[in-house]
Amino acid sequence: MAGRDNVTQATTAPCASARWQGNGLSDMRRRMVDRVATGLCWAATVLVLLMLFSILFVLVRNGVGGLRWITFVHVTLPPGQGGGLANAIVGSLIQTGLAVLIGAPVGLLVGIYLAEFTATDNRFINMVRFISDLLLSAPSILVGLFIYMIVVVPTGHFSGLAGALALSMLVVPVVVRTTEDMLRLVPLSMREAAIALGAPRWRVILFVCLRAARDGVATGILLALARVSGETAPLLFTSLGNMNWSVSPAAPMASLPVTIYQYAGAAYEDWTALAWTGALLITAGILMINITVRLGLGRNRK
């Protein structure tokens, strides 16, 4: 206890007295505690890294066998007849592409609003930022239910567009966050210079500030793309999935996550194998985007 008393004293009154030397026994105890704590921190880090590598290992082991030509060029077929994931891959690309096309502009505008209009509507801005942060972590399955109720029910059928809309609701808050952060990094002097040259405010924002922040903003959009391309829950009740070739956003559309979900739980070996291949593809794509973005960011910071 003597050692601990010394420490408390040191934090409150930072004057090292002779008592600080302590006796050998409490010193040893303190060092032991420190060693154990350090060891546990190592253990936690190693454990979580092991989880990551275990996931990657299992994905590669189970999924690499299905990386054949036919997987990419053939649509899904009933069990036992072969088939590939072509419609799911294309469907995923269309839906995430549409989601980014819809969500990114909205996110950009809101991000601009949050960063550039604080002088006039600060209170409302704080509220919008708060709500946007809530949307960032809202349960994605509820987003799916919401779009089901406001799009699928009125139109009377599931559609790729509904899926894209559900995903775009997840794109917006990510883009808002990064856009605002990046615009705040643009130096004041740049705005002042542009204003002094007589540019109207909207031109200053769009052609000076946003241009200066474009790398960061593009990063945000890429991260949003990566995030939604693995989302399954919002698509279950919106684009539903489709066994056949479907590229029309007005019809039910297949997507990789939903196909994986349907196939992974099936009792047919070729289906589960395809599910693992799909999982490998999607994880590889997402991790690739993330690594590229992080490497790019690291370079820019230097």
């Binding site: 880090t45 275990s54 996931i55 299992v58 693995g230 399954t232 994986i260 999982a279 997402i286 991790l287």
Partner: peptide, 26 residues
């Protein structure tokens, strides 16, 4: 710490359905 921190953050990017499959298989 930079490298390991990035790896840990990659775990956050892995989609939830992958965790589900890994959980079920492992």
């Amino acid at each position: 710490a930079g490298v390991i921190g990035t790896l840990i953050q990659l775990l956050a990017a892995v989609p939830s359905i992958i965790f589900g499959m890994w959980g079920f298989a492992v």
